[in-house]
């Protein structure tokens, strides 16, 4: 147990962070270079003003017609993504572990709040799973990988709340929690989770062309 704990809380954290940051940066840089060669228009038309205008409309809940047309999906998607990103960064246990290792720290969430946010992430995963099974067009579009990714995302949250509440087997859950969290970070640059890193660029470019060239709204 000590060996696995030491591995999962030591070297694997570094591996995960390096792969996550390096992979994301590497892939984005490679795309930027490819774009120079083959998509010169991107550099010509990219406009920070219009990119930001579009991004803002799409990161504000119900800021676009598309979101207003599907209120349930919008609500779940926003809550899910906010909790997914905020919870691990501001979870007390994580902040404390980081303080122990690196001597830096920041404010953290009350446990009850983090608990609720974790449950919301898990419910979000269930919603998306259900949507993939029940809604005909989404079912048609879904690939086996989409289901695996839902599992990869849900795993650290399920095991996290498990070990926090000390349900039976919580020691195993704690180890699985660390490993699955690291797995998610490692997966991020190489799977569809990469949509996180691509969003500002695809949305920003869509906004740039829509605003700067086509003079139209894209939300």
């Amino acid at each position: 147990m000590h060996e696995i704990y030491q591995l999962a809380s030591g070297i694997l954290v570094w591996v995960a962070l390096i792969v996550f940051v390096g992979g994301t940066a590497g892939r984005l840089i490679r795309m930027a270079i490819t774009a120079r060669k083959k998509d010169a228009v991107i550099y010509q038309y990219f406009s920070f003003y219009y990119a930001l205008r579009s991004i803002l409309h799409w990161i504000i809940p119900f800021g676009s017609m598309s979101m207003r047309a599907r209120p349930a999906m919008t609500l779940v998607a926003f809550i899910f993504h906010i909790c997914l990103i905020i919870t691990p960064i501001f979870l007390a246990a994580h902040v404390i572990l980081i303080a122990e290792s690196w001597g830096i720290g920041w404010a953290y969430l009350p446990n009850a709040v983090a608990d609720i946010m974790t449950i919301l992430v898990i419910l979000g995963c269930l919603f998306f799973l259900l949507r993939r099974i029940v809604q005909r067009d989404v079912r048609y579009l879904s690939t086996p990988g989409d289901f695996v990714l839902l599992l990869v995302v849900a795993a650290p949250f399920v095991t996290g709340i498990w070990t926090y509440h000390q349900w039976s087997g919580f020691e195993i859950a704690g180890i699985v929690h660390m490993l699955s969290g690291e797995l998610m970070l490692i997966c991020l640059p190489f799977t569809r989770l990469f949509h996180m890193a691509l969003f500002p660029f695809t949305r920003g470019y869509a906004g740039s062309e829509a605003g700067g060239v086509r003079r139209a709204r894209d939300w």
């Binding site: 000590h2 060996e3 704990y5 122990e100 070990t163 020691e171 704690g174």
Partner: peptide
């Protein structure tokens, strides 16, 4: 506190190390 307990437990490979333990 954590350094006091946990780092020794890890060094000695004995004793609890996870939060919930």
């Amino acid at each position: 506190y954590h350094l006091q307990c946990k780092s020794c437990h890890l060094d000695q490979k004995a004793g609890p190390v996870q939060c919930a333990q």
